[in-house]
């Protein structure tokens, strides 16, 4: 199951820390710990796949950031990004972490937040799509 932020159903999958977007938006800003519920069609040979961006303006303020990818509360990986721009993350998930009856909770936590100078609102990164792929 793969969630496109442009999908009309995307909001249903959001658990927390993803900004509500308008219908048709290709991406959404996140806060510090964006979490989504995503159903695994199978538990075997699945990878977590995430397409996201680190905005260069934000990056100039925060500097390198560390993202932690979690599946059902278990840390799948922790990666330090030293450049801004579009990123792709993909990594196999141990089958025993997943179930097919209910959605798994996928979270990404970012260590440093960007603070918008105009209004002081804090943002994490820009999420485009996230889900499980074979």
């Amino acid at each position: 199951m793969f969630i496109e932020m442009s999908s009309p159903d995307a909001s249903w999958h959001i658990v927390k820390d993803v900004e509500p977007g308008a219908t048709g938006d290709q991406w959404r800003w996140t806060k510090q710990n964006p979490s989504l519920k995503i159903l695994a069609v199978t538990t075997q040979n699945l990878k977590l796949s995430v397409d996201f961006s680190l905005w260069d303006v934000a990056f100039r303020q925060t500097g390198p950031v560390e993202l932690t990818f979690l599946v059902n509360g278990k840390t799948l990986d922790k990666i330090r990004y030293t450049t801004p721009g579009q990123k792709h993350f993909e990594k196999p998930i141990p089958p025993e972490w997943l179930t097919t009856d209910v959605e798994s909770i996928v979270s990404i936590s970012i260590d440093k937040l960007y603070t918008a100078p105009e209004d002081g609102v804090k943002f994490g990164f820009i999420l485009s799509r996230i889900g499980f792929v074979r």
């Binding site: 159903l39 695994a40 069609v41 199978t42 538990t43 075997q44 089958p95 025993e96 179930t99 097919t100 009856d101």
Partner: peptide, 14 residues
């Protein structure tokens, strides 16, 4: 009188 118990998680969507 007693079976051996093991578990086998469901692997596919049913």
């Amino acid at each position: 009188n007693q079976p051996v118990e093991t578990s086998r998680p469901t692997r596919v969507n049913l």
